[in-house]
Design a protein around this nucleic acid. Structure first.
Length: 567
RNA sequence: CGGGGCGUAGCGCAGCCUGGUAGCGCAUCUGCUUUGGGAGCAGAGGGCCGGAGGUUCGAAUCCUCUCGCCCCGACCA
């Protein structure tokens, strides 16, 4: 490709609304352009990178015998009503009507459609397993799209679905996909790790997320500092703490705490640490109010709390709802003297509290010197807290660290959730009918490119790894009006093309500085500069990632390029 | 949906408080010079000041409503 013919428009200045490095550089390097909130156009160089990732995904998916299909984006409401998700999915599901006033939605995911296809054809255990995937556009009407391709409303996803006669067969495909995902993200040059994950609203049992490690990530991951354990903090279990040695009981007292309502304020005011305070949080669940108790220096894990309560809807109570339960304004809730009916959930961490502080359920009053059993019974406790730095690893007991990650892939064992709802059944060798066992597997294609940029950039721009780069090598022709230089550059260009390489020839009539700045910004891995040395048969070569320059004869330029691309 | 902020040339912004000819930098176009890290000079084009109402002799500026965008939160295969 000749730069003079390429539709590529780089920006000197960063658009003001870009926040993340990857978002800024994708806009500045002309890979994408925003159309509206959460909607992006992929421009030629951006699409090239997308296509490179897609090609890797296809190769690895085909290698594990998954077959590619393409399913409609617009899907009939009936199918979603049949699975029950028409009502459950909420506002992320963009609903629309056709000219006959029939209801449709834009597919945020394709379990319903794929299950409908498979149930229509597959009758016998002999026809299973079936493993289909597609690479296509999804639409989710996100509450708050942000960070460019990292969280957009319309996005490209590889989604795969497998159908099995039993759990063992599903497990084989799950493991094969797990392996394929590892190879895909390795080939993309990413620093990532698979982590145990929550199954979320899609349902199912086992689940792993593939997380690219990056400070900009929206997910927090608990990683063991000693073993290979890694889990989304939403899921990572927190064990029952060791019992503390008994302290001398203090008297129960009500003390004024004027203007102090947060755990930190109250603890500081009373000269204690947050770990000596019992935090009492009021939630509203679908079955009524929930009072959650936890040690003051910890946070409630709402995912765990929901699971413990067996409910799908949970939110913080409003000020009025809090007042109804505690009889006091927000900030003075405690476990003693609550009124009305509510469900109590206590975290394991409260068991070790002695002589602790809690709200008195009275305006600007707290209780001190509270002790379990003397002042109130110790409730049954469960694990409803968020794991924190230095908590013990659930596998080996060594401390965990909390790291940030970008979720680029997710594998689920779905079980029979959709096959039951949509009646996708097969007949076994005994003539008995069973719902198919399903798995589903996703990769965010655009997000993978964005994550790649998060991990590979410097102050001047993107530093693409070869497999994801829009072009693998760039020839910078310093002066296109110089016949010698032009001839040399053209010769190398044609030679590299004959090698089947993605090569970009910067033949623009621009000053060298402009070309160098653009080259760094768009991040092509190998650069060949044809300049002053051309008259002596020499060119200058360098790698974007380290910028070390070497002068090589034109005759060995192609060979050197091939060698550098492998390094 | 709650809180905050912003809409002025393709991009980045000033002007608004205190109403009176719509500006700056970059980009674009023309010419000359320049050619190894975002060139210099000279000239030119480009605006419903997000939209609709209102106040006023007069509105980018003041008021009301609306639409869009961004940030924080809640939410999220």
């Amino acid at each position: 490709m000749r730069y003079s013919k390429l539709f590529l428009h780089t920006l000197k200045e960063t658009p003001a609304d870009a926040e993340l490095i990857s978002h800024k550089f994708m806009l500045r390097s002309g890979m994408i352009r925003k159309l509206a909130s959460g909607l992006y156009s992929y421009l030629p160089t951006g699409l090239r990178s997308i296509h490179k990732v897609m090609a890797i995904v296809r190769e690895e998916m085909n290698a594990i015998d998954a077959q590619e299909v393409m399913l409609p984006m617009v899907q009939p409401a009936e199918l979603w009503q049949e699975s029950g998700r028409w009502d459950l999915y909420g506002k992320e599901l963009l609903r629309l009507k056709d000219r006959h006033d029939k209801s449709f939605c834009l597919g945020p995911t394709h379990e319903e459609v794929i299950t409908d296809i498979v149930r229509g054809f597959v009758r016998s255990y002999r026809e299973l397993p079936v493993y289909l995937y597609q690479i296509h556009t999804k639409f989710r009407d996100e509450i708050r799209p942000r960070f460019g391709l990292m969280r957009s409303r319309e996005f490209i996803m590889k989604d795969g679905y497998s159908f099995h006669v039993n759990d063992e067969d599903l497990d084989r495909t799950y493991q094969a996909t797990y392996g394929a995902y590892n190879r895909i993200f390795e080939r993309c040059g990413l620093d990532f790790r698979p982590v145990e994950a929550d199954t979320g609203s899609i349902g199912g049992h086992a689940s792993h997320e593939f997380m690219v490690m990056a400070d900009a990530g929206e997910d927090a991951i608990a990683c063991c500092t000693a073993c290979s354990y890694a889990a989304n903090v939403e899921l990572a279990p927190c064990p029952l703490p060791d019992t503390a040695s008994p302290a001398t009981p203090e008297p129960l007292q009500e003390v004024p705490t004027p203007g102090k309502s947060s755990v930190e304020e109250v603890a500081a005011f009373l000269g204690k640490g947050p770990a000596q305070v019992l935090k009492t949080l009021i939630y509203m669940g679908e079955k009524g109010p929930v009072v959650a108790l936890i040690r003051g220096d910890y946070s409630i894990n709402e995912v765990k709390l929901q699971r413990h309560l067996g409910i799908d809807e949970l939110r913080m109570a409003t000020d009025e709802e809090v007042a109804a339960i505690t009889g006091a304004p927000v900030g003075f809730a405690g476990p003693i003297g609550l009124r009305g009916s509510y469900t109590l959930a206590a975290d394991h961490s409260v068991t070790t509290l002695q002589n602790f502080v809690a709200g008195a359920n009275t305006f600007e009053k707290h209780l001190t010197g509270i002790n379990w059993n003397r002042d109130l019974p110790l409730p049954a406790t469960t694990d409803i807290r968020i794991i924190t730095e230095n908590d013990p690893c659930p596998k080996c007991g060594n401390p965990v660290e909390i790291r940030r990650g970008i979720e680029v892939g997710h594998v689920f064992k779905l079980g029979t959730k959709y096959s039951k709802a949509l009646n996708a059944c097969f007949t076994d060798d005994k003539g008995m009918e069973h719902p198919m066992i399903m798995g589903c597997y996703g990769i965010g294609i655009g997000r993978t490119v964005a994550a790649c940029i998060e991990q590979n950039h410097d102050g001047n721009g993107i530093v693409f790894p070869v497999p994801v780069a829009p072009f693998s090598c760039l020839i910078t022709l310093i002066n296109p009006r110089d016949a010698q230089m032009t001839q040399t550059a053209e010769g190398i260009y044609n030679g590299l093309l004959r090698q089947g390489l993605d090569v970009l020839l910067d033949d623009r009539d621009e000053r060298p500085g402009v070309k160098f700045k653009d080259a760094d910004l768009i991040g092509i891995p190998v650069r060949i500069v044809v300049g002053k040395g051309a008259k002596d048969g020499m060119v200058e070569m360098s790698l974007r990632k380290n910028n070390e320059k070497l002068t090589v004869p034109v005759s060995s330029c192609i060979e050197t390029t091939l060698r550098l691309l492998k390094s």
